[in-house]
């Protein structure tokens, strides 16, 4: 029997964050939640093909970090990347279209759920090989620094990535080259079906390693949008001002399983319940306690509901890709020819 892992007690420190930022954080969390719930339903309906990895319960991290970013900053994320892609402003219908394999998809149907990319939004890709994007993200950070643009790169990844070689190569490299990058570990305590602490030599799989490599290392409650926004703002600001790389390890929990229809039953029930009680959507109560107008929150919720309905319907109605698309964009000339 696996021992349950409970969340740390909630901090009662109230961070100094503007109301409009808090509303934006709430808007993000709600929209990400609505999207993931719908993606799950459409997967179960057989409309989302292949696989699908949801961020249900983990939305505060993408929301908090994205809200702290500049429009032209870069993000790199993983196969669990719907939330991070949407949080940078990629429209819901383009993401849903991609999940459904439609021409309207953000990659024209050639990427799928695990490879969402929107360069015009700074979303430089969702990568499905554990750890690979961490070293690639370094390259974007290096390039930004050489081009003198002040852009910061953020790389999201899961706790499972902290035991692969590329993670360690990436951290050392980022520090030695003092790159403007922020690594964000979403530690949801479980890799796929195995608890991360049962296969990791240190207590905090990302933060402890990052300290050893000389990165600024921060542990944060990943279910608290304010806390994530606060540490992300500081880490991004540090990177932008030449202060080098940071690691944020955000403790969180996925409400569902690893992927597809996995019910996640390998996890102790009391653990799941304890974390669900710390749902990022609980942020609503804080906003009300701070005296915010409930009507504003309801308007945000209604807008998210309407948008996800519209995005789902648009994706379902969108045409399938032209079959010719299978043969385009292997090369920069647009084609696929390997011979004359």
């Amino acid at each position: 029997m696996v021992q349950a892992r409970f969340p740390e007690p909630v901090s009662d420190e109230l961070l100094d964050i503007e109301d409009k930022t808090r509303l934006e954080l709430y808007r993000q969390v709600v929209r990400l939640r609505r999207f993931e719930e719908r993606a799950y339903r459409l997967f179960m309906d057989g409309l989302v093909k292949g696989t699908s990895h949801l961020s249900l319960g983990m939305e505060a991290i993408a929301a908090g970090v994205a809200t702290a970013m500049r429009e032209d900053d870069y993000t790199f994320c993983t196969y669990r990347g719907h939330a991070h892609t949407l949080a940078r402003g990629v429209p819901m219908d383009a993401v849903m279209g991609e999940l459904l394999g439609r021409q309207s998809g953000v990659c024209g149907g050639k990427g799928g759920s695990m490879h969402l990319t929107s360069v015009e939004h700074g979303v430089m890709g969702s990568y499905a090989i554990i750890g690979a994007h961490l070293v690639i993200a370094n390259g974007a950070a290096w390039s930004a620094s050489e081009r003198g643009t002040g852009q910061v790169t953020v790389a999201f990844f899961g706790d499972g990535a902290t035991n692969i070689g590329a993670f360690h190569e990436a951290l050392n490299f980022a520090k030695v080259w003092e790159l403007p990058i922020v690594f964000v570990c979403e530690n949801n305590l479980w890799m796929e079906y195995t608890p991360i602490d049962s296969v990791t030599a240190v207590e905090h799989p990302a933060a402890d390693r990052a300290s050893a490599y000389g990165l600024e290392s921060i542990i944060v409650d990943g279910n608290d949008p304010d806390a994530v926004y606060d540490v992300a703002s500081r880490a991004i600001g540090r990177a932008r001002s030449g202060g080098g790389p940071s690691m944020i390890e955000a403790k969180t929990y996925r409400h569902g399983g690893h992927s597809r229809a996995d019910p996640g039953t390998y996890r102790p029930e009391e653990e799941v319940e304890a974390w669900k009680a710390r749902d990022p959507l609980g942020y609503r109560d804080r906003l009300l306690a701070l005296g915010m107008d409930e009507a504003e929150l309801v308007a945000i919720e209604d807008e998210a509901d309407a948008d996800i309905d519209a995005a789902s319907e648009a994706a379902k109605a969108a045409p399938l890709p032209d079959l010719e698309a299978a043969y385009t964009n292997v090369w920069a000339d647009g084609g696929w020819s390997w011979r004359n």
């Binding site: 430089m124 961490l134 070293v135 690639i136 993200a137 390259g139 390039s143 190569e169 050392n172």
Partner: peptide, 18 residues
């Protein structure tokens, strides 16, 4: 460093951004 993944990752990320 002797980090072939980091070398190629740096090259790839840089190539995609200019």
């Amino acid at each position: 460093p002797i980090s072939e993944e980091a070398i190629l990752g740096a090259a790839m990320g840089a190539a995609m951004t200019g």
